[in-house]
Simulated scan of single mutants.
Amino acid sequence: MTYVIAQPCVDVKDKACIDECPVDCIYEGPRKMYINPDECVDCGACEPVCPVEAIFYEDSLPVEWSPYRTADQEVFIPLGAPGGASSVPPLAADHPVVASAPVSEPS
């Protein structure tokens, strides 16, 4: 099991979660942050600092955002587990679930 970043993060990317992650497993995509499930240690440090409440333990992910579980897994297939987000540039593309999401306007 791991944590998942869901729809509320799309077009927000506050990045407070990055500062709290002790294992550097949160990667930046063009529209959303992603947790690498192979690197996440399930510590939960990222969840309470997310200002839009987009981070969920995998088993607690709301049903309407279940495609984001797959997105956070599949986006890392070509990348694997590089050993930390700070060692690689931001992801070149979002997962199709995120890329197809309506653009959120800043409030």
Rank of each mutant, 00 (worst) to 15 (best):
T2H: 14
T2D: 08
Y3A: 06
I5S: 06
A6F: 07
Q7E: 15
P8N: 03
P8K: 03
C9F: 02
V10C: 01
D11Y: 11
K13N: 09
A16L: 14
C17K: 11
C17P: 13
C17V: 11
C17N: 10
P22R: 05
I26R: 09
Y27K: 05
E28V: 12
K32V: 04
N36H: 07
P37V: 04
D38I: 03
D38P: 04
C40S: 05
D42P: 00
C43V: 06
G44N: 05
A45I: 03
C46H: 07
C46T: 01
C50L: 07
A54E: 00
A54G: 14
A54C: 11
S60E: 15
S60H: 08
P62H: 04
E64T: 12
S66M: 08
S66E: 14
Y68S: 06
D72H: 08
D72S: 08
F76P: 14
P78A: 03
G80H: 14
G80K: 08
P82V: 09
G83C: 09
G84Y: 01
A85P: 07
S87I: 11
S87F: 13
V88L: 13
P89H: 03
L91S: 00
A93V: 13
V97Y: 06
A99C: 07
S100W: 01
V103Y: 13
S104I: 12
P106D: 00
P106S: 04
S107K: 11
